[in-house]
Design a protein around this nucleic acid. Structure first.
Lengths: 212, 212, 212, 212
DNA sequence: GATGAATGAGCTTTCATTCAT
DNA sequence: GATGAATGAAAGCTCATTCAT
């Protein structure tokens, strides 16, 4: 996984042959991995630094604090999901097509950013009362992501395409089904491949478990 | 032991006559509450002991360690869900009726043991690599719970009632949908009332989001 | 030096023969000594704990933080000086007699609490911008101590006994002369003996350096 | 080098033409200011460098260490006081006139180098056992300053002009009175103006507090 | 001359756990 | 059964200093 932030532009890198490592990026990668494996609390700066091949002090040269890094990582990830989904929605199409796009983007996200999803599920669905600021940090973004989808469901209901249930409930069914399927595989150490499950997921979500 | 939610703090209790407080139970209640609020790591023995109205040393007189208590709480809860579900399944009925029973028991569990569900979601869906033993502790129980349901789905597929998809996937859709809907409400501080959502959930799971 | 706070009352001590050490008191003594030698910043909890013969954790069992202990020590000391001075003033007498009492109490304080005076001079006359709360902590006490003396000087001026200068300036002359003489000796490792200097100090303060 | 007080921060300077900023001097100014505000320990190289508008590395290009800079600053200041006092003494006059000169120079010094005085009081009267070398650094200079004044007092005593007390004690009374009055004002954020207090100080020191 | 990334020793503080009473 | 003082390993973080460029 590699959503590196502030990656140096190509021409800033020196010495093509020589492996000029960007310290900040290495920290990002290792932190993401370790946060996703251990959660925020059990991850230690010492381990992140060790794995990144730097001294503890170097970590603090690049980041103000453990929380700051974590929050940063969190926001980066959610922004990617949001952006992708918005872009997909703007392509237009029927309600069902757009719903499929939302589902598809979510599946792609789980596939492409498995480490990040682990991390987010570890800490955000996790200890609710966590450093409460995370709640605050997330709420706006979460809404920005959810509202358009709810709107889409409403649109479908007006057209008589979507069942007349609470849009929020429908939304949660979509998110819950996809994330549970994806995270179960990811937590079990399997690599999540959306191709294997996407048609099944669409089937279940659209038409339910029962035949007819 | 019973998972009482919102158990009164020690000092709120009235000791009329010789109504003895069972120390162990008081610890259970407070630990459950605090674990569910803060997660395993952020909960401290000190706080649990304080809230239970006992000395820190007393905690260690009753429990070997923080983890032991946590694991105990964990198992108690899962056993309740398992037992209830098994009992419900043994009542027999058509596949759909039994599936409805499974869903119903799950909803009841989320409703009756909200604190416990918070706790479990805080730490088990949480930091995956947690004290790795939890994984080991859970796997057997989880399987004992999941297998009969998978078997039920298979039975339905053989009868042509349930769509021809991976039973595991179907199972995860059920679990994911229900838990997400329930936990969203619980984490948002609302009291989860299964009556309000159970028919909608059944509708979505059985027939999907789309009309026809 | 031994202004122990919360010292156990006699009957709380167990085992007369056996040396039952009061941990909190030992920490007080060592902290006072080390703060006075090194100042707040250069003193470390590790050293205080070591010298007190306890583990680092034990320090934090008894005190919330390094600052808290320091502030506590600070207040204890100033209260002693204040109380002694007030008591002396309440005995009444002529203005000169009362002024002599104030001077005498100050000298006694420097003599009896040399460690504390070192500490206070190390940090309070010291880094002005220190954890600013100290300023706040001290101002009220300082005023409570200074005001009665200023009032005394004013009384003397009304009676035509004390020279017509700013009372604040006169007060500072008294404090500065005494503290400089005392601290010079204390910092130079000599034991400060007020008997040796008190008559000289009174002479200088009352009649000046010059003859006639 | 000159101890300019309230030197403008780097970024406030206007570089018109090729008016070169002497890096070393800028560091001096900012270090003096910050040391005087925070004391040696609480001042950081980072802040000094920031305020001087240079990189941290640049600091170490100009100075061997934090202590070295501090000691240098210390010596510069004391030399100024010493030189001024020596010069004033060499002008001759009666004992009283020369004593007035000493007092006057001291007052001028407090007025002209308030930042430096803050600094010196922050750290030298401060944590006594400080990097013990400071003691060693200072003793010679201190003696070079004090001895002539003590000699002057002795001369006055031989002439029957100065009261027959320990010259050291008299000296400390002078230093203590002046420095306490000056520092009280400086620490309280007022600008110290020697004109306002010099006649009062002379009165107190020469003739005491009491009338007649 | 100047830079800033990197370092590591050292600091304060937390907390699960032990144990004598 | 119950207590609470004591412990020490480990964590997050700071900062003077170095050094390749």
């Amino acid at each position: 996984m590699h959503y590196s932030v502030n990656a140096p532009r190509r021409d800033e890198r020196v010495k093509d042959g020589d492996e000029k490592v960007n310290t900040k990026e290495v920290i990002f990668e290792q932190a993401l991995r370790i946060f996703s494996e251990k959660g925020f609390e059990r991850a230690t700066i010492e381990e992140i630094a060790d794995q990144a091949g730097i001294a503890k002090g170097t970590f603090y040269y690049h980041f103000k604090s453990k929380s700051e890094l974590f929050e940063f990582l969190l926001q980066q990830g959610t922004h990617i999901l949001m952006d992708n989904t918005m872009t997909a929605l703007q392509k237009g199409g029927t309600v069902v097509e757009r719903l499929e796009a939302v589902i598809n983007e979510l599946l792609s996200f789980f596939q492409d950013y498995q480490e990040f999803c682990r991390m987010i599920f570890s800490e955000i669905l996790g200890p609710a009362a966590a450093p409460t600021r995370w709640e605050e940090i997330f709420k706006p973004d979460r809404q920005k992501y959810l509202l358009p989808v709810i709107e889409l469901i409403r649109e479908g209901q007006e057209q008589g395409i979507i069942r007349n249930i609470s849009p929020q409930t429908a939304l949660q069914a979509i998110l819950g089904t996809i994330s549970t399927i994806a995270m179960t595989q990811i937590f079990h150490g399997e690599h999540f491949d959306k191709m294997k499950v996407s048609s099944q997921i669409r089937e279940i979500l659209f038409h339910g478990i029962l035949v007819a």
